[in-house]
């Protein structure tokens, strides 16, 4: 069947009606999915598109969250004004995280260095109680947009959805342009990319900064969603979660990031919803990841690509 790309607009439009059918708790889960969509989209830029084994994503997430938390609590800024600064803090962290890669560190060495960066940031959250509340955590005031308090999950949902749609479209445009081609060229063959006149160093920096920006905004939304940040929110379990999102969704696929975050975020919550399944969340979650990777090694996006070619043309690379 021939489909037009405008079909993509159906999804956010359909999702708009969700508050009509969901209770507050399920709405919270949907909001969490929106947060993790940005986490996945940002992480995928560095891992899936640039092809680098860099796990600094949790640092960007935490920095974005704490940036919003600190700006609202310490400076009294309304939350909506902190979203872009949180993204910029994430981007700055992205620039810092790209330094080892710019110095030629690759693969497992880059992985361990970037993991260390995330742990270092967690240590910093604990050791700067004046700013972050230390191990007690930081309580973030109720978010507000233009003076309108986002008191319910439904309110947050519409604001989050707007942010996610804007950020995903912007990212999609960049990834489909010469910039996205340069990222993939570097992933495929760095020397050949440079031989095409692509300044590879600049594109490394750009990919990490872009990733940090997107994930930083996700962090800011996370702060507004949960209302309380603590250093444990950004530990190694989060690294696994972020990695699972992009692996299950599909490396380098924008739609994959979205599908992955839906599956990874919703599965444990849906299981919890059924009383007779309570207590088996962990193993069902683990098994479902294994099953998806086993039967769809290219992630859920590969399934979608088989359904219709419009998903394949633009995003599906494997």
């Amino acid at each position: 069947m021939k489909l037009n790309r405008s079909i993509f607009w159906i999804f956010p439009l359909l999702v708009l009606a969700l508050p009509l059918v969901l209770n507050q708790y399920l709405q919270y889960v949907v909001n969490l999915i929106l947060v993790y969509i940005l986490v996945g989209v940002g992480f995928n830029i560095v891992v899936g598109n640039l092809g680098q084994l860099a796990f600094s994503n949790v640092a960007f997430f935490g920095i974005g969250a704490y940036a919003s938390g600190i700006l609202t609590t310490q400076l009294g800024m309304p939350w909506w004004l902190t979203v872009i600064p949180a993204g910029l803090c994430g981007a700055l962290a992205g620039c810092a995280a790209s330094i080892p890669a710019l110095r030629g560190v690759r693969l497992f060495y880059l992985a361990i260095m970037t993991l260390a960066f995330g742990e270092l940031m967690r240590w910093l959250y604990i050791r700067t109680p004046g700013l972050t509340g230390g191990s007690m955590g930081l309580t973030v005031p109720e978010p507000a947009v233009f003076g309108w308090m986002l008191t319910t999950e439904y309110h947050k949902f519409y604001v989050f959805l707007f942010i996610v749609v804007v950020v995903v479209i912007a990212t999609s445009r960049l990834l489909e342009s010469r910039i996205g081609r340069a990222f993939l060229a570097i992933k495929n063959d760095e020397n050949a990319a440079a031989a095409m006149g692509i300044p590879t160093g600049q594109y490394f920096l750009l990919a990490f900064a872009l990733s940090g920006f997107v994930v930083g905004i996700g962090g800011s939304m996370y702060a507004a969603l949960v209302g309380h940040l603590s250093p444990e929110d950004f530990d190694l379990i989060q690294v696994i979660l972020h990695f699972a999102i992009i692996m299950v969704g599909g490396l380098g696929s924008l739609i994959g990031s979205i599908l992955g975050s839906i599956l990874i975020t919703a599965t444990p919550e849906v299981i919890r919803h059924f009383e007779w399944l309570v207590g088996s969340e962990e193993w069902i979650f683990g098994v479902s990841i294994i099953v998806v990777i086993l039967f769809l090694p290219r992630g859920l996006s590969s399934l979608l690509a088989k359904v219709n070619s419009i998903f394949k043309d633009r995003y599906y690379r494997n």
Binding site: R178, R181, A182, L184, A185, K187, N188, D189, A192, A193, A195, M196, G197, I198, G252, R317, N318
Partner: peptide, 17 residues
């Protein structure tokens, strides 16, 4: 030397970067 994950056309576009 080719970028396998890009199409032939995209490879040439990379050459035009």
């Amino acid at each position: 030397g080719l970028f396998g994950e890009l199409t032939a056309l995209e490879n040439v576009l990379t050459g035009l970067h």
